[in-house]
Design a protein around this nucleic acid. Sequence first.
DNA 1: AATGAATGAGTATTCATTCAT
DNA 2: CATGAATGAATACTCATTCAT
Lengths: 237, 237, 237, 237
Amino acid sequence: MVYKTSKDTQERKDAKRQYIIDTAIKVFAREGYHKTSVKDIVDEAGISVGSFYFYFKGKEDLFAELYDEMTGLLSQVSLNAVDTTKDNTQQCSSIAAKRFARGTAASLWAFQKSRALSRIMLIEAIGVNPEYEKRRSENLREDYLKMEKLFIELKDKKVISIPDPKVTAIAYESSGYYLIMEWLAGDGEDDLTDYSYPLAVFRLQALKIDYSEEEVKEWINEVLIELDNGSICKGLL
Amino acid sequence: MVYKTSKDTQERKDAKRQYIIDTAIKVFAREGYHKTSVKDIVDEAGISVGSFYFYFKGKEDLFAELYDEMTGLLSQVSLNAVDTTKDNTQQCSSIAAKRFARGTAASLWAFQKSRALSRIMLIEAIGVNPEYEKRRSENLREDYLKMEKLFIELKDKKVISIPDPKVTAIAYESSGYYLIMEWLAGDGEDDLTDYSYPLAVFRLQALKIDYSEEEVKEWINEVLIELDNGSICKGLL
Amino acid sequence: MVYKTSKDTQERKDAKRQYIIDTAIKVFAREGYHKTSVKDIVDEAGISVGSFYFYFKGKEDLFAELYDEMTGLLSQVSLNAVDTTKDNTQQCSSIAAKRFARGTAASLWAFQKSRALSRIMLIEAIGVNPEYEKRRSENLREDYLKMEKLFIELKDKKVISIPDPKVTAIAYESSGYYLIMEWLAGDGEDDLTDYSYPLAVFRLQALKIDYSEEEVKEWINEVLIELDNGSICKGLL
Amino acid sequence: MVYKTSKDTQERKDAKRQYIIDTAIKVFAREGYHKTSVKDIVDEAGISVGSFYFYFKGKEDLFAELYDEMTGLLSQVSLNAVDTTKDNTQQCSSIAAKRFARGTAASLWAFQKSRALSRIMLIEAIGVNPEYEKRRSENLREDYLKMEKLFIELKDKKVISIPDPKVTAIAYESSGYYLIMEWLAGDGEDDLTDYSYPLAVFRLQALKIDYSEEEVKEWINEVLIELDNGSICKGLL
DNA sequence: AATGAATGAGTATTCATTCAT
DNA sequence: CATGAATGAATACTCATTCAT
């Protein structure tokens, strides 16, 4: 009886909301979080301030939403890439190597996919707000813990050789960070995924997993092609 | 006579300048760069805004100086720790392992030494200002380049086995980053240097350097004691 | 047929209109006029802003209506209490005393009956708007004038002894004001009608009317019971 | 050694502060508290917003200060007028009558002296802010209490005849309120002190104090002259 | 050199009101 | 009649920076 929120209207609202988020990503990436005013965003989006505040509680609220959304997407891509390994023909250590190689490449691919998102996650989200730092920290810790669990398992199976799964997990995740920062500092012309192989090797060696150069290169090419095809994560990014 | 006076004056100026920087470090670390106003700093320092602007062009100028100074100090500590290895009795790969282990421990020690400085360098300095990012990037690149050069040399000597010295250098430097971030996110009670061994192992394995557990542990203990004694970098931190 | 429908519709419209007013009274009393937004009212009422503006020209318009309505009610109660004195067995001065005592008690009873209304009339309605002040002033003046007329009459009859009927009327009306304000400032636990007797005496003495303590107390009890029974003003408050 | 706040500078600061307060009084009285923006005040004062916030924490802070200042002044005037009665030649009840008459006239005189201040105290200060209401309430209560104490004393001495000192004190204070409100609602042409006599009589009769018309008129004339001469409260208003 | 009063552009946010659906 | 998305002017307050003393 009451068409308070007709499907049509709701869809238009969702679309506008997403449009604002997308615009904000662009502006935040270009100008930086702190130098971006709400006015900058609404001007770029061509909407009124009132509209902005109709859809979001405020600048921080928007950013939080935007950040969470991105975090989810990035995790998703890496995980999908890793899990798509249904290959059972190979022995354990080889499977592990494959997973790590694929994950490494997928991660770089995901960052490369959107410079704007990457900038925001790795640069603009830092130092925004003390209470906000927690969220960041927790997100990272989740990733560490997954890795730590995996490392513990593989260590037990003698697939990898590391002294401390927790610290190793953190160091493992950390090892790609500056690479992406460098890419962000550059003009964006160079291909981040080109570094997949050396980074994967760095990580594999750090875990003391045996690997063959050819295979690693092969795996990386494979996953990058899959990602470009969209066969791993359709429409995620 | 004239000289003496000016010299004296100069010294007093330098001292006050340094005093302002030190105060600013405290405040930035406590409140965050963006939430710190010039007034916060001068209030804490007990000086007037006018004075502040006599010594610094502005808030950003102060921060830049402060950042450069800190970067220098941190580099210094690591380098000193590495270079103090005048040990020639051992074979090449062992020397390299020792240097990396010492460097790793020294770096963690340095960050642990001053949470305030660490916070500023790793958190507050991020996303401050797009044009400022360059400086940050260049500082890091300097460190990478030193490492890269070293890696090229060691690769030629077959001491390490890596596919790409540049990427490896970046990944190597990067690998400790999240560890320190985690420590900063925590309450600061745990000892960052406790992670020296697993991180050093992670790095050594990543470079494919052979090492003996005992030796690495020994080297790390050694350098930490030296650092605590102040025999490596007197009064630097 | 046409009439019936429109009559029906009209009734529904009136009901909704009144519902909005009632809701607004609650919200204004709770949050204060200035801190209440139109959205606060419509949210509490469960209607849309559009509806609100269909029934009222705006926030001020609503308030004016609401205020007038309340003023009318309060006046009504006092007047009814006064007029219900159909007692002709007593002499003139005693009748006057009875009327004033009853009026005083009735007035306090009416305010006590609805803290929300009282708050709005005495606190929120003040300083809302310079042009709005006129209306307030006029309402009060109406009351003064009634009193003034009465005082002139009674003065002629030598029932009361006052130098200036107008000023006395204003002072008479005014004398209960702070009492109610005090009650509003408190937690509302104490019974405002408890002050009927001392206030009535204050007023009677001010008019130089002779009275007997017992009678005044009796009259007050009487009228309060009548009011509670609803025999004076059914459903007015 | 350090002339941080030279006397001269301090004086200029105090003057500017007072100037802002004076300007604010004008604007608040003219436009009303809620309709007055900080910009209105600074524009009228010809200063910058920054200056305003240098001297006051905010709009509310300014208002609080202004209100307290005024409250103090008004109390002062009434009290001085009352206390100046060093007349010991007369009998007790006469002295009391004199004090009340003088107080009544002095109070009206003080309000008349500054329409702007009066408007703010009686109109604009109402409903400004729930927490602010307390302050108002407390100020009034202080006045009540003084009166109550006095009434208790006089009741004991049989000078006045009232049933309840507390309620009587509140009613007594209250009785002048609407008179002033009426005057504020008018054009300000009529003389508020003209109402001194009827109001004084109203109050005296309410307390059942005997008085002679001539004396009361005399006392009122006396105190008004003293007030105009400034012999009661030099430079207070 | 030192001081701190003065500046004013800039910011996030609110809210009464309109109007297309 | 009802809805609620859209508007944008208005507002309180901040803060880096300047400059007269």
